[in-house]
Design a protein around this nucleic acid. Structure first.
Lengths: 131, 131
DNA sequence: CTTGCTCCTGTAGTGACTACAGGTTGTAGC
DNA sequence: GCTACAACCTGTAGTCACTACAGGAGCAAG
């Protein structure tokens, strides 16, 4: 599989794939005789994982940590547990923040839909919010 | 009020305030004779609005739109509501993904605590999510 | 009058891409 | 075999939303 196939299969820009290689979240691939990168199914899955994790707001450093965790299933349980727990704490933190944001945005949209134009408080909602 | 006071009052970095001016989300302020920027209470509120909107995930373009709507009170609220609804949809999407990742990380931590070498399925947790 | 703080402008660095320039390789049609 | 063109290569520069720093000016206290 060449980079263009990987791009289509994973739904990730070719330039982004090469960037991920430089950033160290995708392994340096083997090359064909002509110098072109060769990929396999594992790379499609790995790329899918990276994209989802990025969508969730994880930065590339966190993603490197998550990938390292999954690549060393024989690593000591305490180490793996510590890394996983740290990621879990981060996920919980993001979850509670997002839940607050959801409440705030819902309130904004609700009030806007209920009100007439003159009573729209979308902008005021941001200034008088409990955050 | 000088830029340092505004910075402290609004809890926003001095450099960020000057950046917001360049970016067109803060108005170009009056200057003292010595060339220093002068701000008022309205700027504290506007900056608070900008920071809050940024925290909610709005980009500066959306914020410019919201501020423009605020400055034309006869304009309809539907534009502001549409922007907020788009943000809300995105927050809901992220919440669902994070909840599935949390479940997977919890499972890994639990298995580690039981002394079982976790079969790492972090990648699958994100790839097999319904999104 | 020197020290030290805040301010000024302008430029460069960050992270995570994204785009483009300029060159090479592979393939399909003639 | 020749030509066209897509896909690949490297390397650099641009984007967004900041953040940091260099180099200089104003001002107030000791």
């Amino acid at each position: 599989m060449q980079i263009g196939d990987l791009s289509r299969n994973a739904g990730v820009n070719v330039e982004t794939i090469r960037y991920y290689e430089r950033a160290g979240v995708l392994p340096v691939p083997a090359r064909q005789g002509n110098g072109r990168r060769i990929y396999g199914e594992a790379d499609v899955r790995r790329l899918g994982f990276i994209r989802h994790a990025r969508d969730l707001g994880f930065d590339l450093q966190s993603i490197r940590t998550l990938l390292a965790l999954q690549e060393q299933p024989e690593a000591s349980c305490t180490d793996a547990s510590r890394i996983a727990q740290a990621q879990l704490d981060e996920v919980e933190r993001r979850l509670s923040k997002l839940q607050s944001l959801r409440a705030e945005l819902s309130r904004m949209v609700d009030e806007c839909q209920k009100g007439v134009v003159a009573e729209c408080r979308v902008i005021e909602a941001l200034n008088t919010s409990p955050f």
